[in-house]
Write a protein that binds this DNA or RNA. Structure first.
Lengths: 217, 217
DNA sequence: ATCAGTTTGTTAAATAATTACCAATATATT
DNA sequence: AATATATTGGTAATTATTTAACAAACTGAT
């Protein structure tokens, strides 16, 4: 990694995975080079934005040529830290937790699921794929022994904050949160929320807005 | 709804569900009024931002008093269109599809799940709760007869675009997309993406960045 | 009723993000 | 080797978003 701008904005960071995804597709198609102009056309971004974004992390392109697709993909993988292994556990082994346990997107992201935990004795002992559901009281010991650094919260809203407290108490440094609530965690703990209900409400809004527009015509 | 600014930015729209969620909690706690200042403290926003956002849709507050919590919540529900019924189907009845079928967040959002569809004959015929999994070839007829206007795509990446094409061909006007790909749809069709892999990569980036910072100290 | 203290809606200022531009420098062609 | 063409990286201009400021208008207490 050549350079890293001190404060890369979240707007840029949230575009990186999309760059990565499309570059990976280009590699698979056997395309070896691409200009910001072409890439922008594919992504629906301006060429300027792509060049600005990439330049937060280094000058990966070459004048008159563009970007080497494979090289750029690997650089972005590196920036995203996709090569770094991170052991994770899921807390909450209900429908959503089980779906996440089966989630194929872990592959290639560096995250490795090591176990699931639940309070429901009916679930404890079951395996999802090769992942065991364990009692949540065994969680602390497991985290310590297995070098877990990511907790994935798939509990209902009500239990989420207490789970977060327990996880951070055990020294976990990052949480992927699917519970529909904002977690309070110590300053150095990273939380990335997946708010399904918010996404659904935005969809409702956009549908509603379109109706308003049509009626206004 | 008093007024609606012509072009409300997506930044504002994506904050509305959060306003709604917190207002709902305040109603449940029995709090009847709140100022933008207090509300901002709870949400982690500035008071200015809250007043600006709300004023895109109307003057819901009162000087010297603040906002009536219940009233404001109901106004936002109305703006989001949460009272309008929208019949939905899920396409792709694997782990994720089943988890979404059981998703409690549909309640109170106006969306009603009517059926699920899959190509896998092993899944067709099974019920998830009281929702039947049907053969995808029966989808067109079902959409027509049941007044479906939202499709929820939970298929793998590979099948997603063809499903989207089929759905829009049947006249569906909105898609909630969980497949890790960008869908091409006719102009008037709304797509809201839930990109789990992008969220996970952002988490990876932030963890990686924190490590860089710590090593730089 | 009056007055001090609040708090809004709105306008202005400041900040952030995106887009346009262009010199520098590469490639490709003759 | 010379020249035309392409394309970057960085800077400047533009646009969008957020924050600050404040007159107007309400509440609640005396």
């Amino acid at each position: 990694m050549d350079k890293i701008k001190i404060n890369v904005s979240m707007a840029v960071i949230r575009r990186l995975p999309k760059y990565y995804r499309y570059l990976d597709e280009l590699v698979e198609k056997g395309i070896t080079r691409i200009s910001s102009k072409e890439f922008g056309k594919i992504l629906g971004f301006t060429a300027s934005q792509i060049r600005q974004d990439l330049n937060c992390f280094g000058g990966f392109g070459q004048q008159g040529y563009g970007y080497n697709v494979r090289e750029l993909r690997d650089e972005i993988a590196n920036i995203l830290g996709l090569h770094k292994p991170n052991n994770a556990i899921i807390v909450g082994a209900g429908n959503l937790g089980q779906a996440i346990a089966n989630y194929s997107g872990f592959r290639g992201s560096g995250f490795v699921l090591k176990a699931m935990f639940d309070i429901n004795p009916r679930l404890v002992g079951i395996s999802i794929g090769d992942i065991k559901i364990m009692d949540i009281d065994d969680m602390g010991e497991f985290i310590e022994n297995t070098d877990i650094n990511v907790g994935i919260i798939c509990t209902p809203k009500e239990g989420a904050q207490s789970v977060a407290k327990r996880l951070t108490g055990e020294g976990i440094k990052a949480i992927w949160n699917f519970a529909p609530t904002d977690l309070e965690v110590p300053e150095n703990v990273i939380v990335e929320n997946v708010q399904l209900s918010e996404s659904l409400m935005v969809l409702a809004y956009l549908m509603n807005e379109r109706d308003r527009m049509e009626n206004a015509q």
